[in-house]
C-alpha cells in the first residue's frame, strides 16, 4: 500500500493553498475532498480578498482552481473522508470506497451550517427549508419567507431576498440583531421586512412543502404562514472525522501558531480550527503555514 508524505483533507481556500505550497515543495501528496471551493462558493460578494476589489465566490473559486491546476496536483474530488485513524507512526484515512496511508495530514475541512433541531426540519429540507440563501433565494419570487438568524449571514439573506420575495420575517432568538450595525439600519428601512427579536422557532409545518412556522415570543405561540425558510444560525466545524486530537468547547481543532494539533504529524488549517477570524484570506494563510509546517516536520523525521 502506498504511503504518502502528506494528505490534505478538504479543498476550500485552506486546503488549496496548502496544496500549492506542498506542490512547490515537491511533496508526495494528494488532496481528498468532497468539493472544490468549500464555503467560498457560497459567498456572494467578496470585497476583502487582496488583489480583487470585488469578486463573487464562484469566480474566486474558479481562480483557485486555475491556480492549482498549474501544478500537477492529484485531487480526489467527490470523496468524503469518513474516518482518520492512527496506524503506528502513520495515519490511515478512509472514504466510503478507498483507504489511504500517509505520514502527515492537514485537516482543512471547514464548517457546515448549523441546523435548528426543531420538528419538521428534516421533513421539509429542500421542500421550502434551505441553508443557502445565495443558491435558493431566486426560487421564492413573490413568496412569503422567513429568515432565521439575525447575524451577518441572516442579514445577507434578507438583503438578497428583499429584491425577490413579497414579505420577509426575520427571526432572532436574542433581544437584538447581532450583525453589522450598517446592515441592520439598511434592513430596518425595508418595508416588507418584519423583525421578531426574543423569538424562538419551535416547529415547521406543511403538507408537501413548508406552509408555515410556529414561533414563541413572550411565552405566546404565534403562527406565521411562510412558503420558504432560510436557516442562517451559524455553523459548526467538520471535525468529527478525527477523535485523537484536542478540540475546544466548540469542537474546533486546537492548533498552535505552526498549525500543529495535539498529535504529532497531524496539522489543521482554516475554519475547522480555533483560528481567530473565519475568513478566506485567513484560511489561505493558515493553509500555507500548515503545508510548510508539515514539510519541516518530515525533514526532521
Amino acid at each position: 500500500m502506498k504511503l504518502y508524505e502528506l494528505i490534505i483533507i478538504g479543498a476550500g481556500p485552506a486546503g488549496l493553498t496548502a496544496g500549492i505550497y506542498a506542490a512547490r515543495k515537491k511533496m508526495d501528496f494528494i488532496i481528498i475532498t468532497e468539493d472544490i471551493g468549500g464555503m467560498t462558493k457560497y459567498s456572494w460578494d467578496i470585497e476583502n480578498y487582496l488583489g480583487y476589489q470585488f469578486i463573487t465566490g464562484p469566480e474566486l473559486v474558479e481562480k483557485f482552481r486555475e491556480h492549482i491546476n498549474e501544478f500537477n496536483v492529484e485531487i480526489r474530488e467527490g470523496q468524503k473522508v469518513i474516518e482518520v485513524l492512527k496506524d503506528e507512526e502513520n495515519f490511515k484515512i478512509s472514504t466510503k470506497t478507498d483507504t489511504y496511508f500517509t505520514k502527515t495530514i492537514i485537516i482543512a475541512t471547514g464548517r457546515r451550517p448549523k441546523e435548528l433541531n426543531v420538528k419538521g426540519e428534516k421533513e421539509f429540507r429542500n421542500k421550502g427549508i434551505t441553508y443557502c440563501a445565495t443558491c435558493d433565494a431566486p426560487l421564492f419570487r413573490d413568496k412569503i419567507v422567513g429568515v432565521i438568524g439575525g447575524g451577518n449571514s441572516g442579514l445577507d439573506a434578507v438583503l438578497q431576498l428583499s429584491r425577490i420575495a413579497k414579505k420577509i420575517y426575520l427571526i432572532e432568538i436574542k433581544d437584538h440583531l447581532t450583525g453589522d450595525f450598517f446592515v441592520i439600519n439598511k434592513i430596518k428601512k425595508i418595508d416588507k421586512v418584519e423583525i421578531f427579536t426574543n423569538t424562538k422557532v419551535v416547529e415547521i409545518y406543511g403538507d408537501k412543502f413548508v406552509q408555515g412556522i410556529k414561533i414563541i415570543k413572550n411565552n405566546e405561540i404565534i403562527e406565521l404562514k411562510v412558503d420558504g425558510l432560510f436557516v442562517e444560525i451559524g455553523s459548526i466545524p467538520n471535525s468529527e472525522i478525527i477523535d485523537f486530537v484536542e478540540k475546544n468547547q466548540y469542537n474546533e481543532i486546537i492548533v498552535d501558531c505552526k498549525n500543529r494539533t495535539s498529535h504529532k504529524g497531524v496539522f489543521a488549517a482554516g475554519d475547522v480550527t480555533n483560528v481567530f477570524a473565519k475568513q478566506i484570506i485567513v484560511a489561505c494563510g493558515e493553509g500555507a503555514k500548515a503545508a510548510i509546517s508539515s514539510f519541516e516536520y518530515l525533514k526532521y523525521l
Binding site: 468539493d35 471551493g37 462558493k41 457560497y42 465566490g57 464562484p58 445565495t134 443558491c135 435558493d136 431566486p138
Partner: peptide, 10 residues
C-alpha cells in the same frame, strides 16, 4: 437551475 447556485454551475 438558478443563476446564483454554485452547484448548478458545477
Amino acid at each position: 437551475s438558478t443563476k446564483t447556485c454554485p452547484y448548478c454551475k458545477l
